[in-house]
């Protein structure tokens, strides 16, 4: 059992290592993240001016903290916005999304119902098996 689990873990970590792209901070070997360097900070932010996640940025925990503190300092000094509205883009996308969602919600429900049934059946069989062993 344990060996199988370990194998699974190793495989997972290998995949992650391949995917991982190092942060711009490590590539450019920046030691001190300056809150005045807006163009650098913006590379770690989304178009709505939110700080992207550590996994997305490829930052280490320490780097992400440096970035987040610098962004917060820059925001206090009005160098970076707290939030940016992308109103026109958002409206278009939102409408489309809603349409898609309604379409998806109505149509795949028919497909989804049998899937849930399948799961239930599996769960039932497992339970009965457990009961059988207990008995």
């Amino acid at each position: 059992m344990t060996s199988k689990k370990n194998r699974a873990r190793v495989a997972k970590t290998d995949k992650r290592k391949i995917r991982k792209k190092p942060s711009a901070l490590t590539i450019e070997s920046i030691e001190y993240v300056d809150y005045k360097d807006i163009s650098l900070l913006q590379r770690f932010m989304s178009d709505r001016s939110k700080i992207r996640g550590r996994e997305v940025n490829g930052n280490t925990v320490q780097q992400q903290r440096d970035i987040s503190n610098a962004v917060k300092n820059a925001r206090e000094m009005a160098l970076l916005p707290y939030a940016k509205r992308v109103a026109s883009v958002r409206a278009g996308r939102g409408e489309r999304r809603n349409e898609e969602q309604t379409a998806e919600n109505t149509a795949p429900e028919v497909d989804a119902v049998p899937a849930i049934d399948d799961l239930n059946i599996e769960g039932v069989t497992v339970e009965t098996a457990a009961e059988a062993t207990e008995a």
Binding site: K36, R75, M77, A78, L79, L80, P81, Y82
Partner: peptide
């Protein structure tokens, strides 16, 4: 120019 208005002002002089 500020990234957002501060005290109803839109811009300021920065010194470091």
């Amino acid at each position: 120019r500020f990234a957002y208005p501060i005290n109803k002002k839109e811009e300021g002089y920065y010194v470091v």
